[in-house]
Design a protein around this nucleic acid. Structure first.
Length: 255
DNA sequence: AAGTGGATCAACCGCATGGTT
DNA sequence: CAACCATGCGGTTGATCCACT
């Protein structure tokens, strides 16, 4: 692999944590907090780098960590949020109290992704995969995600939403020759050209699935594909609101 | 009982971001 | 404003577990 890791460079320990190390870290954090992860291992007497300590605490030792299997409700929430947010595991974890981004990422890759693939195979008429899902991050690693870089412009079949009075904002993506679509009030998009706003039923009949989350995935692309490139710090609450308007699960906790 | 291959998950790595100097 | 630093994030790895042959 690339450059030598910092831990080895400093003669620090790597690999699985021992119960003794865990206890030292717990005791230290409970006493002094974790204001400075970099300095913590030295102060606590641990032969670990700060990064490793932070990860261990956040993913395993934190007192509010919920262990054990994910409930069907949690899994459904993850699926919904993943449709909405893509591989933004920390954002998803923020909506699942007691669950960590690492855990959610693991459960997605080991269970949920396969389940969705199976579901899609069983219903081959539909293709819910996003054309291009861009997040605020511009790194190559973020873009290299299979979820985010997968390609499918056609969203399938009938849309069953009853919210026909909603507006849908459509922007032709010249480069990829498809439409970016989002649902919401036109006032949510300052400076939008009126020609971009179509009635909902007029658009979704052209090929959208019945999951609000998929619409939102397209939503995010809209922001980054058009005049709104400067809005790379998009507002989670804003998107959540649109997600709900578009028929997303309302049972998620409030921001 | 032993071997094998897939599944799982803790931990690591590199990079991006935001704050500070 | 550039350089540096600390932290957070997402992708990936590798050890271990477990079911199956």
């Amino acid at each position: 692999m690339g450059r030598a890791p910092c831990c080895e460079k400093m003669g620090l320990k790597k690999g699985p944590w021992t119960p003794e190390e865990d206890q030292v870290l717990i005791n230290f954090v409970q006493k002094f907090g974790h204001g400075n992860w970099r300095a913590l291992p030295k102060q606590a007497g641990l032969l670990r780098c700060g990064k490793s300590c932070r990860l261990r605490w956040i993913n395993y030792l934190r007192p509010d960590i919920k262990r054990g299997n994910f409930t069907p409700e949690e899994e459904e929430t993850i699926i919904n949020l993943h449709q909405m947010l893509g591989n933004r595991w920390s954002a998803i974890a923020a909506r699942l109290p007691g669950r960590t981004d690492n855990e959610i990422k693991n459960v997605w890759h080991t269970h949920l992704k396969k389940r969705l693939i199976n579901n899609n195979n069983n219903n081959s008429e539909k293709d819910f995969s996003p054309k291009r899902h861009r997040t605020g991050r511009t790194s190559s690693s973020a873009n290299s995600s299979p979820q985010q870089s997968s390609s499918s412009s056609e969203f399938s079949t009938e849309h069953e939403t009853s919210q026909n009075d909603s507006k849908v904002i459509v922007v032709k993506d010249e480069e990829y020759d498809h439409h970016q679509v989002s649902s919401g009030s036109s006032s949510d998009f300052p400076e939008l050209d009126e020609s971009m706003i179509w009635p909902l039923d007029q658009v979704v009949s052209g090929g959208f699935d019945d999951h609000g989350g998929d619409m939102l995935l397209q939503n995010e692309s809209l922001i980054f594909n058009t005049n709104y490139d400067d809005q790379d710090q998009y507002d989670m609450e804003f998107w959540y609101d649109i997600f709900i308007k578009a028929g997303g699960s309302p049972e998620l906790p409030e921001f």
